[in-house]
Design a protein around this nucleic acid. Sequence first.
DNA 1: TACTGTGAAGAACTTCACAGCA
DNA 2: TGCTGTGAAGTTCTTCACAGTA
Lengths: 206, 206
Amino acid sequence: MRKISESTVRRLSVYLGLLEEFARLGKATVSSDEMAQRGHTTPAQVRKDLSFFGSFGKRGLGYDVVELSDRLRDILGLGRTYRVTVIGAGKIGSALVQYREFGERGFHIVSVYDNDEAKVGRSWNGVEVRDVRQLESDLRTEPVDIAILAIPPHVAQQTMDLLVGIGVKAVLNFAPIRLSHPDEVTVQNVNMALELETLSYALRNS
Amino acid sequence: MRKISESTVRRLSVYLGLLEEFARLGKATVSSDEMAQRGHTTPAQVRKDLSFFGSFGKRGLGYDVVELSDRLRDILGLGRTYRVTVIGAGKIGSALVQYREFGERGFHIVSVYDNDEAKVGRSWNGVEVRDVRQLESDLRTEPVDIAILAIPPHVAQQTMDLLVGIGVKAVLNFAPIRLSHPDEVTVQNVNMALELETLSYALRNS
DNA sequence: TACTGTGAAGAACTTCACAGCA
DNA sequence: TGCTGTGAAGTTCTTCACAGTA
Protein backbone atom coordinates (compact mmCIF):
# COMPACT_ATOMS: atom_id res chain seq x y z
CA MET A 1 0.00 0.00 0.00
CA ARG A 2 1.11 3.56 -0.65
CA LYS A 3 2.86 5.09 2.35
CA ILE A 4 0.36 6.91 4.52
CA SER A 5 1.53 10.04 6.31
CA GLU A 6 1.54 10.17 10.07
CA SER A 7 -0.78 13.17 10.03
CA THR A 8 -3.33 11.15 8.10
CA VAL A 9 -3.13 8.30 10.61
CA ARG A 10 -3.60 10.70 13.50
CA ARG A 11 -6.62 12.23 11.85
CA LEU A 12 -8.15 8.81 11.26
CA SER A 13 -7.85 8.23 14.97
CA VAL A 14 -9.60 11.54 15.60
CA TYR A 15 -12.35 10.65 13.11
CA LEU A 16 -12.92 7.38 14.92
CA GLY A 17 -13.39 9.25 18.17
CA LEU A 18 -15.92 11.56 16.52
CA LEU A 19 -17.80 8.67 14.97
CA GLU A 20 -18.08 6.96 18.32
CA GLU A 21 -19.59 10.12 19.70
CA PHE A 22 -21.99 10.39 16.76
CA ALA A 23 -22.97 6.78 17.40
CA ARG A 24 -23.72 7.54 21.06
CA LEU A 25 -25.95 10.37 19.90
CA GLY A 26 -27.84 7.91 17.71
CA LYS A 27 -26.73 9.40 14.42
CA ALA A 28 -26.82 6.83 11.60
CA THR A 29 -25.12 8.80 8.89
CA VAL A 30 -22.57 11.56 8.77
CA SER A 31 -21.07 13.78 6.04
CA SER A 32 -17.44 14.76 5.56
CA ASP A 33 -18.59 18.29 6.36
CA GLU A 34 -19.90 17.35 9.79
CA MET A 35 -16.79 15.37 10.60
CA ALA A 36 -14.58 18.22 9.47
CA GLN A 37 -16.34 20.72 11.70
CA ARG A 38 -16.14 18.55 14.78
CA GLY A 39 -12.58 17.50 14.00
CA HIS A 40 -11.26 20.96 13.21
CA THR A 41 -10.26 20.14 9.65
CA THR A 42 -11.75 20.47 6.15
CA PRO A 43 -14.24 18.23 4.34
CA ALA A 44 -11.77 17.68 1.51
CA GLN A 45 -9.18 16.54 4.00
CA VAL A 46 -11.58 14.03 5.52
CA ARG A 47 -12.50 12.57 2.15
CA LYS A 48 -8.89 12.49 0.96
CA ASP A 49 -7.73 10.74 4.13
CA LEU A 50 -10.41 8.09 3.77
CA SER A 51 -9.83 7.69 0.03
CA PHE A 52 -6.35 6.26 0.65
CA PHE A 53 -8.05 3.20 2.08
CA GLY A 54 -11.13 2.83 -0.10
CA SER A 55 -14.56 4.29 -0.83
CA PHE A 56 -16.66 4.06 2.28
CA GLY A 57 -19.33 6.68 1.62
CA LYS A 58 -22.49 6.95 -0.38
CA ARG A 59 -22.66 9.91 -2.76
CA GLY A 60 -25.41 12.30 -1.86
CA LEU A 61 -25.76 10.71 1.56
CA GLY A 62 -22.52 10.57 3.48
CA TYR A 63 -21.00 7.81 5.57
CA ASP A 64 -22.71 5.16 7.65
CA VAL A 65 -21.50 5.87 11.17
CA VAL A 66 -21.23 2.28 12.34
CA GLU A 67 -19.77 0.96 9.13
CA LEU A 68 -17.12 3.66 8.91
CA SER A 69 -16.21 3.18 12.57
CA ASP A 70 -15.67 -0.50 11.90
CA ARG A 71 -13.53 0.18 8.89
CA LEU A 72 -11.41 2.72 10.78
CA ARG A 73 -10.91 0.38 13.70
CA ASP A 74 -9.80 -2.21 11.20
CA ILE A 75 -7.42 0.17 9.41
CA LEU A 76 -5.93 1.36 12.70
CA GLY A 77 -5.50 -2.18 13.92
CA LEU A 78 -7.90 -1.66 16.83
CA GLY A 79 -9.87 -4.84 16.18
CA ARG A 80 -7.75 -6.67 18.73
CA THR A 81 -6.24 -6.09 22.15
CA TYR A 82 -2.63 -5.19 22.81
CA ARG A 83 -0.40 -6.26 25.66
CA VAL A 84 1.41 -3.21 27.01
CA THR A 85 4.13 -2.89 29.63
CA VAL A 86 4.99 0.29 31.48
CA ILE A 87 8.63 0.74 32.42
CA GLY A 88 9.10 3.18 35.27
CA ALA A 89 6.84 3.28 38.32
CA GLY A 90 7.17 6.99 38.98
CA LYS A 91 4.40 9.54 38.82
CA ILE A 92 3.91 9.30 35.08
CA GLY A 93 3.94 5.51 35.09
CA SER A 94 1.40 5.59 37.85
CA ALA A 95 -0.87 7.93 35.91
CA LEU A 96 -0.65 5.73 32.84
CA VAL A 97 -1.55 2.53 34.65
CA GLN A 98 -4.78 4.12 35.76
CA TYR A 99 -5.53 5.91 32.52
CA ARG A 100 -9.01 4.75 31.52
CA GLU A 101 -8.83 5.50 27.81
CA PHE A 102 -6.13 2.86 27.32
CA GLY A 103 -8.28 -0.01 28.49
CA GLU A 104 -11.29 1.26 26.57
CA ARG A 105 -9.24 1.16 23.39
CA GLY A 106 -7.97 -2.36 23.92
CA PHE A 107 -4.56 -1.46 25.32
CA HIS A 108 -4.09 -3.66 28.38
CA ILE A 109 -1.29 -2.87 30.76
CA VAL A 110 -0.02 -6.26 31.85
CA SER A 111 3.07 -5.25 33.82
CA VAL A 112 4.98 -2.40 35.40
CA TYR A 113 8.73 -2.39 36.04
CA ASP A 114 10.97 -0.29 38.24
CA ASN A 115 14.48 -0.43 39.64
CA ASP A 116 13.45 0.90 43.04
CA GLU A 117 13.32 -1.99 45.52
CA ALA A 118 10.84 -0.08 47.63
CA LYS A 119 8.30 -0.12 44.81
CA VAL A 120 8.85 -3.67 43.62
CA GLY A 121 6.15 -6.03 44.83
CA ARG A 122 3.53 -3.38 45.38
CA SER A 123 0.28 -3.67 43.49
CA TRP A 124 -0.84 -0.81 41.34
CA ASN A 125 -4.37 -0.84 40.08
CA GLY A 126 -4.20 -4.62 40.07
CA VAL A 127 -0.83 -4.72 38.35
CA GLU A 128 2.16 -5.81 40.38
CA VAL A 129 5.33 -3.73 40.10
CA ARG A 130 8.23 -5.99 39.14
CA ASP A 131 11.98 -5.64 39.28
CA VAL A 132 13.34 -4.24 36.05
CA ARG A 133 16.05 -6.95 36.14
CA GLN A 134 13.27 -9.45 35.38
CA LEU A 135 12.19 -7.46 32.35
CA GLU A 136 14.19 -9.34 29.78
CA SER A 137 13.31 -12.86 30.88
CA ASP A 138 9.66 -11.91 31.45
CA LEU A 139 9.25 -10.43 27.99
CA ARG A 140 10.92 -13.40 26.39
CA THR A 141 8.43 -15.81 27.88
CA GLU A 142 5.43 -13.49 27.73
CA PRO A 143 5.96 -10.91 24.99
CA VAL A 144 4.23 -7.57 24.88
CA ASP A 145 3.16 -5.61 21.82
CA ILE A 146 4.01 -2.17 23.12
CA ALA A 147 6.37 -0.81 25.78
CA ILE A 148 5.85 2.57 27.41
CA LEU A 149 8.99 4.26 28.72
CA ALA A 150 8.32 6.45 31.73
CA ILE A 151 11.86 6.62 33.05
CA PRO A 152 14.57 9.28 33.42
CA PRO A 153 16.36 10.32 30.23
CA HIS A 154 19.78 9.00 31.23
CA VAL A 155 18.56 5.39 31.31
CA ALA A 156 16.15 5.65 28.38
CA GLN A 157 18.53 4.71 25.56
CA GLN A 158 19.90 1.62 27.29
CA THR A 159 16.37 0.48 28.06
CA MET A 160 15.38 1.11 24.48
CA ASP A 161 18.31 -1.03 23.31
CA LEU A 162 17.23 -3.81 25.66
CA LEU A 163 13.68 -3.69 24.30
CA VAL A 164 14.95 -3.78 20.73
CA GLY A 165 17.04 -6.82 21.59
CA ILE A 166 14.01 -8.58 23.02
CA GLY A 167 12.07 -7.85 19.85
CA VAL A 168 9.61 -5.18 20.96
CA LYS A 169 8.34 -3.42 17.84
CA ALA A 170 6.51 -0.39 19.26
CA VAL A 171 7.52 2.06 21.99
CA LEU A 172 5.83 5.09 23.49
CA ASN A 173 8.57 7.24 25.00
CA PHE A 174 7.91 9.82 27.71
CA ALA A 175 11.58 10.52 28.41
CA PRO A 176 12.62 13.93 27.05
CA ILE A 177 15.23 12.53 24.68
CA ARG A 178 15.30 11.30 21.10
CA LEU A 179 16.03 7.58 21.09
CA SER A 180 18.05 5.78 18.43
CA HIS A 181 16.35 2.68 17.15
CA PRO A 182 16.23 0.47 14.06
CA ASP A 183 13.70 1.28 11.37
CA GLU A 184 11.53 -1.71 12.07
CA VAL A 185 10.77 -0.39 15.55
CA THR A 186 8.19 2.39 15.74
CA VAL A 187 8.69 5.00 18.42
CA GLN A 188 6.25 7.74 19.40
CA ASN A 189 7.47 10.49 21.67
CA VAL A 190 5.51 12.48 24.20
CA ASN A 191 7.56 15.39 25.47
CA MET A 192 5.61 17.61 27.79
CA ALA A 193 8.31 20.19 28.38
CA LEU A 194 8.57 20.60 24.62
CA GLU A 195 4.83 21.28 24.41
CA LEU A 196 5.20 24.03 26.98
CA GLU A 197 8.09 25.45 25.00
CA THR A 198 5.98 25.73 21.87
CA LEU A 199 3.41 27.58 24.00
CA SER A 200 6.19 29.81 25.24
CA TYR A 201 7.17 30.57 21.67
CA ALA A 202 3.57 31.38 20.79
CA LEU A 203 3.18 33.68 23.80
CA ARG A 204 6.36 35.53 22.96
CA ASN A 205 5.45 36.03 19.33
CA SER A 206 1.83 37.12 19.65
CA MET B 1 8.14 38.18 11.00
CA ARG B 2 7.44 35.48 8.51
CA LYS B 3 5.22 32.75 9.91
CA ILE B 4 7.35 29.96 11.35
CA SER B 5 6.02 26.43 11.10
CA GLU B 6 5.28 24.48 14.23
CA SER B 7 7.73 21.77 13.20
CA THR B 8 10.51 24.34 13.05
CA VAL B 9 9.65 25.62 16.53
CA ARG B 10 9.65 22.09 17.91
CA ARG B 11 13.04 21.40 16.38
CA LEU B 12 14.45 24.61 17.85
CA SER B 13 13.39 23.32 21.21
CA VAL B 14 15.17 20.04 20.49
CA TYR B 15 18.30 21.91 19.36
CA LEU B 16 18.32 23.84 22.61
CA GLY B 17 18.26 20.61 24.56
CA LEU B 18 21.18 19.29 22.54
CA LEU B 19 23.17 22.48 23.02
CA GLU B 20 22.68 22.32 26.76
CA GLU B 21 24.08 18.82 26.67
CA PHE B 22 27.02 19.90 24.52
CA ALA B 23 27.64 22.70 27.03
CA ARG B 24 27.69 20.21 29.91
CA LEU B 25 30.28 18.21 27.99
CA GLY B 26 32.39 21.34 27.71
CA LYS B 27 32.07 21.70 23.96
CA ALA B 28 32.55 25.31 22.85
CA THR B 29 31.54 25.01 19.23
CA VAL B 30 29.23 22.78 17.27
CA SER B 31 28.43 22.23 13.59
CA SER B 32 25.03 21.78 11.96
CA ASP B 33 26.22 18.28 11.15
CA GLU B 34 26.75 17.35 14.78
CA MET B 35 23.44 18.81 15.81
CA ALA B 36 21.67 17.00 13.02
CA GLN B 37 23.09 13.64 14.05
CA ARG B 38 22.15 14.04 17.69
CA GLY B 39 18.77 15.52 16.81
CA HIS B 40 17.82 12.95 14.19
CA THR B 41 17.51 15.43 11.36
CA THR B 42 19.69 16.80 8.54
CA PRO B 43 22.36 19.51 8.60
CA ALA B 44 20.48 21.50 5.96
CA GLN B 45 17.37 21.38 8.11
CA VAL B 46 19.26 22.71 11.10
CA ARG B 47 20.75 25.58 9.13
CA LYS B 48 17.44 26.40 7.46
CA ASP B 49 15.57 26.43 10.77
CA LEU B 50 18.11 28.80 12.28
CA SER B 51 18.26 30.99 9.19
CA PHE B 52 14.65 32.10 9.71
CA PHE B 53 15.85 33.98 12.76
CA GLY B 54 19.27 35.23 11.71
CA SER B 55 22.84 34.15 11.08
CA PHE B 56 24.29 32.73 14.24
CA GLY B 57 27.19 30.66 12.95
CA LYS B 58 30.69 31.28 11.72
CA ARG B 59 31.50 29.87 8.31
CA GLY B 60 34.14 27.21 8.46
CA LEU B 61 33.73 26.91 12.23
CA GLY B 62 30.17 26.22 13.26
CA TYR B 63 28.11 27.68 16.08
CA ASP B 64 29.22 28.89 19.47
CA VAL B 65 27.38 26.60 21.88
CA VAL B 66 26.66 29.17 24.57
CA GLU B 67 25.80 31.96 22.19
CA LEU B 68 23.40 29.84 20.16
CA SER B 69 21.75 28.51 23.33
CA ASP B 70 21.14 32.06 24.44
CA ARG B 71 19.69 33.04 21.11
CA LEU B 72 17.39 30.00 21.05
CA ARG B 73 16.19 30.65 24.59
CA ASP B 74 15.43 34.16 23.50
CA ILE B 75 13.61 33.07 20.34
CA LEU B 76 11.58 30.51 22.26
CA GLY B 77 10.70 33.01 24.94
CA LEU B 78 12.51 31.03 27.62
CA GLY B 79 14.39 34.02 29.00
CA ARG B 80 11.71 34.46 31.65
CA THR B 81 9.60 32.36 33.99
CA TYR B 82 5.99 31.45 33.39
CA ARG B 83 3.18 31.08 35.89
CA VAL B 84 1.32 27.87 35.20
CA THR B 85 -1.85 26.44 36.73
CA VAL B 86 -2.89 22.81 36.58
CA ILE B 87 -6.61 22.15 36.44
CA GLY B 88 -7.50 18.66 37.61
CA ALA B 89 -5.87 16.98 40.59
CA GLY B 90 -6.12 13.43 39.28
CA LYS B 91 -3.25 11.15 38.44
CA ILE B 92 -2.07 13.16 35.47
CA GLY B 93 -2.29 16.46 37.32
CA SER B 94 -0.33 14.91 40.14
CA ALA B 95 2.39 13.71 37.79
CA LEU B 96 2.66 17.14 36.20
CA VAL B 97 3.02 18.99 39.48
CA GLN B 98 6.07 16.89 40.28
CA TYR B 99 7.53 16.90 36.82
CA ARG B 100 11.07 18.21 37.22
CA GLU B 101 11.66 19.38 33.67
CA PHE B 102 8.97 22.04 34.01
CA GLY B 103 10.68 23.89 36.82
CA GLU B 104 14.07 23.57 35.16
CA ARG B 105 12.70 25.32 32.10
CA GLY B 106 11.15 28.17 34.02
CA PHE B 107 7.59 26.88 34.08
CA HIS B 108 6.40 27.31 37.66
CA ILE B 109 3.25 25.61 38.75
CA VAL B 110 1.60 28.08 41.08
CA SER B 111 -1.76 26.40 41.66
CA VAL B 112 -3.80 23.24 41.23
CA TYR B 113 -7.59 23.12 41.03
CA ASP B 114 -10.10 20.33 41.45
CA ASN B 115 -13.83 19.94 42.01
CA ASP B 116 -13.40 17.08 44.47
CA GLU B 117 -13.93 18.40 48.01
CA ALA B 118 -11.80 15.58 49.36
CA LYS B 119 -8.78 16.85 47.48
CA VAL B 120 -9.25 20.57 48.10
CA GLY B 121 -6.98 21.89 50.81
CA ARG B 122 -4.36 19.17 50.49
CA SER B 123 -0.85 20.19 49.66
CA TRP B 124 0.85 18.69 46.66
CA ASN B 125 4.54 19.15 46.29
CA GLY B 126 4.15 22.45 48.09
CA VAL B 127 1.19 23.56 46.01
CA GLU B 128 -2.19 23.68 47.69
CA VAL B 129 -5.13 22.15 45.83
CA ARG B 130 -7.90 24.73 45.52
CA ASP B 131 -11.59 24.53 44.74
CA VAL B 132 -12.23 24.96 41.05
CA ARG B 133 -15.01 27.40 41.91
CA GLN B 134 -12.30 29.82 43.02
CA LEU B 135 -10.53 29.52 39.68
CA GLU B 136 -12.08 32.53 38.02
CA SER B 137 -11.61 35.00 40.85
CA ASP B 138 -8.11 33.70 41.58
CA LEU B 139 -6.95 34.09 38.01
CA ARG B 140 -8.42 37.54 37.75
CA THR B 141 -6.40 38.80 40.69
CA GLU B 142 -3.31 36.68 40.02
CA PRO B 143 -3.15 35.81 36.34
CA VAL B 144 -1.26 32.84 34.96
CA ASP B 145 0.49 32.59 31.61
CA ILE B 146 -0.41 28.98 30.87
CA ALA B 147 -3.17 26.63 31.99
CA ILE B 148 -2.81 22.86 31.84
CA LEU B 149 -6.05 20.91 31.52
CA ALA B 150 -5.87 17.50 33.14
CA ILE B 151 -9.59 16.88 33.50
CA PRO B 152 -12.18 14.52 31.96
CA PRO B 153 -13.24 15.27 28.40
CA HIS B 154 -16.86 16.10 29.23
CA VAL B 155 -15.87 19.15 31.28
CA ALA B 156 -12.92 20.22 29.14
CA GLN B 157 -14.75 22.54 26.73
CA GLN B 158 -16.59 24.46 29.44
CA THR B 159 -13.34 24.90 31.35
CA MET B 160 -11.64 26.06 28.18
CA ASP B 161 -14.40 28.64 27.67
CA LEU B 162 -13.95 29.85 31.22
CA LEU B 163 -10.21 30.24 30.70
CA VAL B 164 -10.74 32.13 27.46
CA GLY B 165 -13.12 34.47 29.27
CA ILE B 166 -10.52 35.14 31.93
CA GLY B 167 -7.96 35.96 29.25
CA VAL B 168 -5.63 32.95 29.38
CA LYS B 169 -3.69 32.86 26.13
CA ALA B 170 -2.00 29.44 26.22
CA VAL B 171 -3.40 26.04 27.15
CA LEU B 172 -1.88 22.58 27.28
CA ASN B 173 -4.73 20.10 26.99
CA PHE B 174 -4.49 16.49 28.16
CA ALA B 175 -8.20 15.74 27.70
CA PRO B 176 -8.76 13.49 24.67
CA ILE B 177 -10.93 15.99 22.81
CA ARG B 178 -10.33 18.82 20.36
CA LEU B 179 -11.25 22.09 22.01
CA SER B 180 -12.80 25.05 20.24
CA HIS B 181 -11.06 28.30 20.98
CA PRO B 182 -10.45 31.74 19.47
CA ASP B 183 -7.39 32.21 17.27
CA GLU B 184 -5.56 34.38 19.76
CA VAL B 185 -5.44 31.48 22.23
CA THR B 186 -2.80 28.82 21.53
CA VAL B 187 -3.68 25.27 22.44
CA GLN B 188 -1.35 22.29 22.42
CA ASN B 189 -2.84 18.85 22.78
CA VAL B 190 -1.32 15.78 24.35
CA ASN B 191 -3.43 12.74 23.61
CA MET B 192 -1.84 9.58 24.88
CA ALA B 193 -4.47 7.16 23.58
CA LEU B 194 -3.95 8.66 20.14
CA GLU B 195 -0.23 7.97 20.36
CA LEU B 196 -0.95 4.34 21.13
CA GLU B 197 -3.33 4.22 18.19
CA THR B 198 -0.64 5.38 15.81
CA LEU B 199 1.56 2.61 17.21
CA SER B 200 -1.30 0.20 16.63
CA TYR B 201 -1.49 1.33 13.01
CA ALA B 202 2.24 0.87 12.60
CA LEU B 203 2.13 -2.62 14.11
CA ARG B 204 -0.72 -3.65 11.88
CA ASN B 205 0.94 -2.37 8.73
CA SER B 206 4.44 -3.66 9.20
C1' DT C 1 -30.07 16.85 -5.45
C1' DA C 2 -26.48 16.40 -2.10
C1' DC C 3 -22.61 14.53 -1.21
C1' DT C 4 -18.52 11.51 -2.34
C1' DG C 5 -14.06 10.41 -4.65
C1' DT C 6 -10.17 12.13 -6.94
C1' DG C 7 -7.00 14.18 -10.38
C1' DA C 8 -4.88 18.52 -10.61
C1' DA C 9 -3.43 22.91 -8.60
C1' DG C 10 -1.48 25.09 -4.84
C1' DA C 11 0.91 25.59 -0.49
C1' DA C 12 4.12 24.10 2.84
C1' DC C 13 8.05 21.81 4.04
C1' DT C 14 12.55 19.55 3.14
C1' DT C 15 16.68 18.77 0.65
C1' DC C 16 20.12 20.15 -2.64
C1' DA C 17 23.95 22.52 -4.07
C1' DC C 18 26.90 26.05 -4.10
C1' DA C 19 28.45 30.91 -3.38
C1' DG C 20 30.56 33.29 0.29
C1' DC C 21 33.03 34.05 4.33
C1' DA C 22 35.96 33.17 8.73
C1' DT D 1 39.74 24.85 3.85
C1' DG D 2 35.43 23.89 6.18
C1' DC D 3 31.20 25.03 7.28
C1' DT D 4 27.42 28.47 7.03
C1' DG D 5 23.45 30.74 4.75
C1' DT D 6 20.21 30.51 1.20
C1' DG D 7 17.90 30.56 -3.40
C1' DA D 8 16.18 26.93 -6.16
C1' DA D 9 14.62 22.26 -6.85
C1' DG D 10 12.24 18.52 -5.14
C1' DT D 11 8.90 16.33 -2.31
C1' DT D 12 5.00 15.90 0.55
C1' DC D 13 0.72 17.52 2.21
C1' DT D 14 -3.55 20.23 1.65
C1' DT D 15 -7.13 22.40 -0.91
C1' DC D 16 -9.78 23.01 -5.03
C1' DA D 17 -13.09 21.93 -8.17
C1' DC D 18 -15.85 19.03 -10.52
C1' DA D 19 -17.30 14.55 -12.59
C1' DG D 20 -19.88 10.78 -10.89
C1' DT D 21 -23.55 8.52 -8.50
C1' DA D 22 -26.89 6.88 -4.80
